[in-house]
Design a protein around this nucleic acid. Structure first.
Length: 596
RNA sequence: GCGCCGAUGGUCCAAUGGUAGGACAGUGGCUUCCCAAGCCACCGGUCCGGGUUCGAUUCCCGGUCGGCGCACCA
């Protein structure tokens, strides 16, 4: 069982991740991925890109991390990302001021009130500190916004924020993105990038940090027509922790399939169900221990108001369940907000199968009459007439019609209004697409992969530590060693092989220091799946030159011709073969015999 | 943000009011034909700032960072 300390220590020592800016005392919530960690993270991102961008036929973009204030007014982060804190003068405890007020009043959304008013309410209702019982009256209510703010350009008159999620970078560019998709729904846009939250209390290493990487997919759909390919994931087995089960005293997991869960209505939304299925398989692929993994449904209270169904992927880390991805059906919330605040069109024109002919009441006011008669009010009157025609065509039945404009009532002859009923052909309508959002925390995923891969065992009576990383994500794929360092035939060939392996696009490290066992252990600790060793038996043998390949988890070895080495290693890396296949094809080497 | 505890080579630990010692790791050499072996040598450290003191890594205060608890996690 991997404890957090052991992994933190290994990560520091072997270069997976460590606290940033340590030379200057460090700063909480910021981590640097070292050489192994950066490679591991890059491999996880590649695997994500392969699954959620390439295999889904989506497109990836890269938006700036800083965006101007109006973006976050529209997204709701400027208001909604604030916490109101009040500190107790007696015991120093900080509390959510809005929550305290909501508890003792019938105000439901105290967060919407100005701070001074909340402070007054605390005084008026004589609210006491929940911790020590002393009165909180007179204490200032302070805002704490979780977004990092900055100034764009000189002068400081254009405030900007570091994005608290990568998603907004996709939503704000929707008007162009829909053009690239040729206005055809459904389409998906992905982004892998940094996001920033000025967390009050970063904790637990990589799990809660202030700067982190997200991988997000925004799937834009027509809610009335588009359906996911559920057949592709219907048989995928998942462990679900539904809201209903969470509310029971003895609630447990539903071990079921995606198909059954949709059938039973446990997963309300088919798109969400589809991505849970895809993700179950993806997590397994990158080496997450599926016995320490579950999908947990949000309880009604923790769901954002716009999300109709929301599930988290959670992994067990150090005994706690940690959210590593969220799957939300966001409806049209994001796009309609940006449509409301932004200048561009956040809808898609949807053509009907066949054009519809509709009868529509229209007016075509004669401005040459209205203008002279009503002066500056004429334009408003014309607008009011159009509204009225759409709302109440019967109003035009008589000779005259009255409308209100600018607070006054005007009477216009129906002839001047030129009321008539027209047949119009409509070829389609503008709709606001709905959004399905699978959103992944990359750092937490990387940490999960590390912790779930951590193993301790014994080899030849000696303890060893190793990382059972999947070949696809292992930061260093292969180690290449001369069995001894003082024989040029061995060192020369090993040096040559490292070049060959790298040339094939596989990350490789050469090592001739100390004895062979030490070098194997070094590679075990960074999760290198294979070690190639050049020995005298191999270079002295009649005929072809051979080398040994050792597999990390079992320490089993095979001997194969150097000419086959790169091809076989590539095949395993790409998932076309396993080491077991190689065991069947090549001579097995018994390390114990060789030792004797 | 608050409370408690802590901070010594790359890592893990020891010691001390008079500038620090070990283990492991690392580097160079010897040895070594398959799993952290052996021998020699080397590299490398008291979190930051202030105070007390002739002298502070040690005592005191503040800060930073970490662990745990509380709060927070749209």
């Amino acid at each position: 069982m991997a404890d957090t300390q052991a992994i933190t220590e290994l990560s520091k020592r072997r270069g997976f991740f460590f606290l940033s800016s340590d030379a200057y005392g460090g700063v909480a919530g910021f981590y640097t991925f070292g050489p192994q960690g950066a490679a591991l993270k890059a491999n996880v991102e590649s695997a994500w890109r392969d699954r959620y961008t390439v295999k889904e036929g989506n497109r990836e973009i890269e938006a700036p991390t800083i965006m101007p204030e109006p973006v976050f007014e529209a997204s709701g982060h400027l208001d909604g990302f604030n916490d109101m804190l009040v500190e107790c003068a007696s015991c120093g405890e900080s509390h959510r001021a809005d929550h305290l007020v909501e508890d003792v009043t019938d105000i439901e959304d105290a967060e919407a009130l100005p701070n001074s008013e909340v402070a007054d309410l605390i005084a008026d209702h004589d609210i006491h500190c929940p911790n020590c019982g002393e009165p909180l009256a007179g204490q200032a209510v302070e805002n704490f916004n979780l977004m990092f703010s900055t100034d764009i350009g000189p002068g400081g008159d254009q405030p900007g924020y570091l994005r608290p999620e990568t998603a907004q970078g996709i939503f704000v560019e929707f008007p162009r993105l829909k053009e690239y998709a040729r206005n055809q729904l459904p389409f998906g846009v992905t982004q892998i990038g940094r996001a920033y939250r000025n967390e009050i209390s970063p904790r637990k290493g990589l799990v809660r940090v202030r700067e982190f990487t997200q991988a997000e997919l925004e799937q834009f759909i027509d809610p009335e027509e588009d359906e996911p390919n559920l057949d592709a994931v219907a048989d995928v087995e998942v462990r679900l922790y539904s809201a209903e089960e969470q509310n029971k005293d003895d609630g447990g997991y539903l071990e079921t399939t995606i198909g059954e869960a949709v059938e039973a209505g446990v997963i309300a939304n088919e798109w969400v169900a589809y991505y849970l299925g895809i993700s179950q398989e993806w997590y397994e692929r990158i080496g997450v221990d599926m016995d320490r993994f579950r999908f947990r449904q949000h309880l009604a209270g923790e769901r954002a108001h716009y999300a109709s169904d929301c599930w988290d992927a959670e992994s067990e880390l150090g005994g706690d369940w940690v959210e590593i991805a969220g799957f939300a059906y966001r409806g049209d919330y994001d796009l309609s907000k940006h449509g409301e605040y932004g200048d561009d069109d956040f809808t898609v024109f949807k053509q009907y199968d066949e054009p519809k002919t509709v009868e529509r009441a229209v007016v075509d006011p004669d401005m040459s009459t209205l203008g002279p008669e009503f002066g500056g009010a004429a334009a408003d009157i014309a607008d009011a007439l159009r509204d009225l025609a759409a709302r109440d065509p019967d109003a035009f039945d008589g000779d005259e019609v009255t409308v209100d404009a600018d607070g006054e009532t005007y009477t216009v002859s129906t002839e001047v209004a030129d009321f008539r009923v027209e047949e119009q052909t409509e070829s389609g309508e503008h709709i606001t697409p709905h959004v399905v959002e699978p959103s992944f925390g990359v750092g937490r995923t990387v940490y999960t992969v590390l912790e779930h891969a951590y193993r301790e065992d014994e080899v030849a009576g000696e303890e060893r530590t190793y990382l059972a990383l999947e070949p696809e994500v292992a930061p260093t794929y292969v180690g290449v060693f001369p069995l001894v360092g003082n024989d040029e035939r061995l060192t020369d060939l090993a040096t040559e092989l490292v070049r060959d392996v790298r040339e094939a696009g596989l990350s490789a490290e050469y090592d001739d220091s100390g004895n062979i066992g030490r070098r194997y252990r070094r590679k075990d600790e960074i999760g290198t799946p294979f070690c190639v060793t050049v020995d005298r038996d191999g270079v002295e043998s009649e005929g072809e030159t051979t080398v040994t390949v050792r597999e990390r988890d079992t320490t089993a070895q095979i001997r194969l011709p150097v000419d086959a080495l790169v091809d076989e290693l590539t095949a395993v890396r790409e998932g076309r073969k396993t080491f077991d296949d190689l065991l069947d094809s090549y001579e097995r080497v018994d390390a114990d015999t060789a030792e004797a």
